Amino acid sequence: MGAARPLGVESIDRMLGGGLGAGKLHELLGGTARDEASALGLAAMFALALTRADAGDGAAPILWLREEAVQRRAALHGPGLADLGLDPARLILGVLPDPKSLLRSGVDALRCAALGAVILELSGNPPVLDLTATRRLALAAEDSGVTPLLLRLRGARPMPSAAQTRWQVSATLSAALEADAPGHPALILSLLRQRGGAAGLDWTVEWDRDAGSFRPAALPGARLPLSGGGSLPAAGTGSEAGDDAWPIAI
C-alpha cells in the first residue's frame, strides 16, 4: 500500500488516513465550467504535494498527458505553473490524439518508477474511460508507486471508477495581502468519494507554494457535512464563489 502524503490541513489528512495515498489513483473534477482552471491548478498542487519529499536536486519529474485538440486550443501556461511552485523544467508534456491513446500511454508511463506523478487530462465522458480502464491505471500505479491523477474536465460527470478518492474543486475568494497584493490561491475542496473511508465534506483552503502544501484559508470557510442520501450540491455554489473568485492561470 502506498504511503500517505500529507496535504497540510490536519482535518483533511485525518479524513484520508494520513494524507493523499501515493501510488493510488485519484480523480479530480471541476465544480462548474468556470472552475476548470482551478481543477487544472489542483492537479498541479496535488502533484507537488505528492512529490514534496523529493524536492531539491533530482526532484522527480511530473508527466502531464493531454489531448491534442485541447492543447491546440489552450496550451498549459508556464508562468502560471511556476507561480504555483512547479518548475516547468520538471514537467514533461505528452500530447496524444485521442482518449484511447492517452489512457494507454498513461498505463505505460505509470510503469516508470522514475516519475513522481502522472496527470491524465481528459474531456467529457469518453466511452473508453470505463471501470476497466481505471483499474488498469490503478494496478499500474500500485506496482510502481507512481501516482496517477485523473483530471476530468469539459462536461465530465462522475462515472464508476477504481479511483481511491474523487475530488471536486471550486474557486473562492482569497484574502488580499499587504498593500492589496493578490492573495494566495484559495479553493473549496470537496471529497466526493473515498474507497473504504469517509467522504462528503468540504474544506476551504489556500495553497502555500513555498511549503508545497495546503493550509486552512485565511477567510473563514465552513466545513459542511453533506446530507445522507441526497444529491451532492456543486461545491462553491453560493456567495463565497462569486464573480471575484480567485482564478488560477494555467
Rank of each mutant, 00 (worst) to 15 (best):
A176L: 15
G116L: 01
S11D: 06
A198V: 12
L224V: 12
A235S: 07
I12V: 13
R209N: 12
I248D: 03
P182H: 04
G58K: 11
V128D: 01
T134I: 06
A4P: 10
R136M: 04
L149F: 15
V95Q: 00
P126Q: 04
D54I: 06
G2S: 09
A176E: 12
E206C: 00
L16D: 00
A3H: 02
A176Y: 14
T32W: 00
L137F: 10
P6H: 03
I188W: 03
P6N: 06
D98A: 12
A241F: 02
L201T: 02
K100T: 15
G242C: 01
I119L: 05
S38E: 14
L153Q: 06
S231N: 15
E142W: 11
T32Y: 03
R152Q: 03
S101R: 14
D87F: 12
D54K: 10
L173Q: 07
D143R: 15
S170C: 06
A4S: 14
R5Q: 09
A140M: 00
A234M: 07
S105W: 10
L139P: 08
L28I: 13
D208V: 10
S227A: 15
D54G: 10
D57K: 04
L153K: 01
R34C: 00
A89N: 02
G21H: 10
L40T: 01
G78M: 11
